[in-house]
């Protein structure tokens, strides 16, 4: 029971890191970024390539750094240029970016699977409820909590965080009040991409790397952000935790429909509360 809840917490934490990037970008740009799954994959591959030579921490830093650059470029080249167009156009372009990045990964790293071991410091097990539990999984919870905490502090207590909240609420009014929304765009999209990249490399030690890894997890992070309320940070947190538990307990008690449960939840939320658990709030 405790172990199951813990399994759910770990999976929920990973989903949260991933979905928070999606939510950030949606909050400001009002665009569902399909390339997010590709960012996650790219982060994993870049992190992997650096980590096998220089160590795990440099791997995480490299993944974050490269993905910030990719995110900034995406904002400048795609989001800003297409800001006046139908949002659907932008969504389609992000889907194109996803395909291009997937092919890029195939070309550079090939179609095979890769795996990486957790850093030695985190590779053991601890006894929880009389059974061994991998330390690395607890680290994922810790990393996720750290990122969530940092995010909340930034958004609540810093000046730039205030601007982001203002611009998410109403870009035009914020701009009229002197908020430089043009600078916020690259900042937020870069940060969102970095979150995806970090999720990728953090997940790498217990998942294998392959060019379809992005598409698989993208669907789940969409479910998280829809259930939580698109653009809502707190909502993404709550829904990621709920989905983690549903996944962990579902396969034990309702194995026949376990794969369906996240989507049933999403359907339920869309019917009862279409804006999501904490919709319309940043």
């Amino acid at each position: 029971m405790i172990i199951n809840a813990l399994n759910g917490l770990v999976y929920g934490s990973l989903l949260f890191i991933l979905a928070s990037g999606l939510v950030l970008v949606y909050g400001l740009r009002r665009v569902v970024n399909f390339a997010h799954g590709a960012f996650y994959m790219l982060g994993a591959y870049i992190g992997y390539s650096v980590a096998i030579h220089a160590g795990f921490i440099p791997g995480i830093i490299a993944a974050a750094a490269v993905l910030i650059a990719v995110g900034v470029a995406l904002d400048l080249v795609v989001f800003r240029k297409l800001a006046d167009r139908d949002p659907l156009v932008t969504v389609l372009v992000t889907f194109g970016v996803l395909l291009v990045l997937e092919d890029f990964v195939r070309t550079v790293w090939g179609t095979g699977n890769y795996a990486i071991d957790p850093p030695a410091l985190l590779s053991g097990v601890v006894q929880i409820a009389g059974a061994p539990f991998p330390i690395y999984r607890l680290f994922i919870v810790f990393a996720s909590a750290l990122m969530a905490g940092g995010m909340v502090i930034w958004l609540r207590y810093s000046r730039s965080g205030l601007w982001v909240r203002a611009a998410s609420h109403s870009p035009v009014v914020a701009a009229m009040c002197g908020v430089r929304t043009n600078v916020l765009g690259p900042l937020v999209v870069g940060l969102g991409a970095a979150f995806a990249g970090i999720a990728g490399i953090v997940a790498a030690p217990f998942l294998s790397l392959n060019p379809s890894m992005g598409a698989e997890i993208l669907v789940m992070s969409f479910v998280v952000s829809v259930v939580g309320g698109l653009g809502s940070f707190g909502g993404a947190f709550i829904s990621a935790m709920i989905l983690g538990q549903i996944q962990a307990f579902g396969v034990v008690y309702l194995p026949e429909i376990a794969a369906l449960l996240p989507f049933l939840l999403m359907a339920l939320v869309l019917v009862v509360r279409p804006q999501g658990i904490l919709g319309n709030k940043v």
């Binding site: 759910g8 770990v10 997940a203 998942l207 890894m213 997890i217 579902g250 396969v251």
Partner: peptide, 19 residues
């Protein structure tokens, strides 16, 4: 007997059951 769907990323709930 447990049957994770194709493309499962996190096997922890299944591993716990097997154990």
């Amino acid at each position: 007997e447990v049957f994770p769907p194709l493309g499962t990323t996190d096997f922890a709930p299944y591993i716990t059951q097997l154990r």
